Amino acid sequence: MTASTDNVVLIIVLFNPDLDFLENNIQKLKDFSVICVNNTIDKKNNSDINKNIKKYQHTTIINNNKNLGLSKALNIGINKSLELNAKKVILFDQDTLLDVKKIKDHLNMFDSIDDPLMVALGASYVRSKKDKPYFMSYGLFRKRMYQQGSKKIIQIHSAITSGLLIYAPIFRYTGLFDENLFIDYVDIEWSLRIRRMGFHLYGNFNTKFIHTIGDEVFSVLGKKVPIHSKVRFKQLMKDFKYIATTQKKYFWFVFHEFIQLFLRSALLVFIKIIHFLKLKKSDA
């Protein structure tokens, strides 16, 4: 049975997107209603984005003319979806490679889950086709949850924004995304919040999207660690400070994330030292 695409809205937040990549994604999605929430500031870029998108009748663009942040932009898209009486919304980042078959399979999986408290289904993500997808568990120990045998879905603690399929009316009970968070932890905070309210979130190993996380990836003790740019890392720390100081109910997540950020900061310093030594050696 194929899931209906009626009353399904796809929301994509934009900020200086690659226009060719964006248009390639948009033109695939003719079976869906698509809302693009545009945080791009530059007037020339905005003009090009609107020119490329407005020719597709299935797509609506909302121009903010400034960078309102991810959470605010998502909420604008969600509110517009609710005005359109959407029953399901699927959130995507602008750098996720979209595949219509995968999206429809994701919808089918959502409809097949027999759990009255299930309100959202996260897609698994990979950086390349060779990567093994996983979801994160936050408890006394932080761990990666990999697929066990042929099991396609698993109840999870959180899912990343891109590929997150949500039963839209639930926002009237849970509230929207926390706009105090600019870009990081937006998805995690909402995921942990709905779980505390008694709702269930599942992860779908069967649907994998290729998605970029961080600017570079380094392998440390066999694990791939995303390294963000200096500006992005500064914003990440600001968002973490908000979570750590105001959301004490997420103690274990904050505890583990603090350790992760400390190790990542140390790794950045180490990388800079190695880079400096290489430059010094080449100049000798």
Rank of each mutant, 00 (worst) to 15 (best):
M1D: 04
A3V: 09
N7K: 12
L10F: 04
L10D: 10
I12G: 03
V13L: 10
P17G: 13
D20F: 15
F21D: 05
D31G: 04
V37D: 03
N38F: 10
I41G: 07
K43R: 15
K44S: 15
D48H: 08
N50R: 14
N50K: 04
K54N: 03
K54F: 00
Q57I: 05
H58S: 03
T60M: 02
K66T: 11
I76D: 06
G77I: 08
G77W: 07
I78W: 11
N79T: 07
L82V: 15
L84F: 00
N85E: 14
K87I: 00
D93I: 00
L97S: 05
D99T: 00
K101S: 05
F110Q: 08
S112W: 14
M118S: 15
L121E: 01
G122V: 01
A123L: 01
S124K: 04
S124G: 00
Y125R: 03
Y125H: 12
R127E: 03
S128R: 03
K130N: 01
K130V: 01
K132V: 05
P133Q: 03
S137A: 07
G139R: 10
R142M: 10
Y146V: 07
Q147P: 08
Q148N: 14
S150Q: 14
S150G: 13
Q155D: 11
H157G: 13
A159T: 04
I160C: 12
I166T: 15
A168K: 13
I170Y: 05
T174C: 04
T174E: 06
L176Y: 02
N180M: 15
L181K: 05
D184T: 14
Y185P: 12
V186Y: 09
I188F: 15
W190P: 02
M197F: 15
G198D: 04
Y202R: 14
N206W: 09
F209I: 14
I210Q: 03
T212R: 13
I213A: 12
D215M: 11
E216Y: 13
F218C: 12
K223F: 14
P226M: 08
S229I: 13
K230V: 03
R232F: 03
R232E: 15
L236I: 04
T245N: 03
T246Y: 01
K249D: 13
Y250D: 05
R264G: 11
S265P: 05
A266W: 15
I273C: 14
I274V: 11
I274A: 09
L277I: 15
L277S: 08
K278N: 13
K281M: 00
A284T: 08
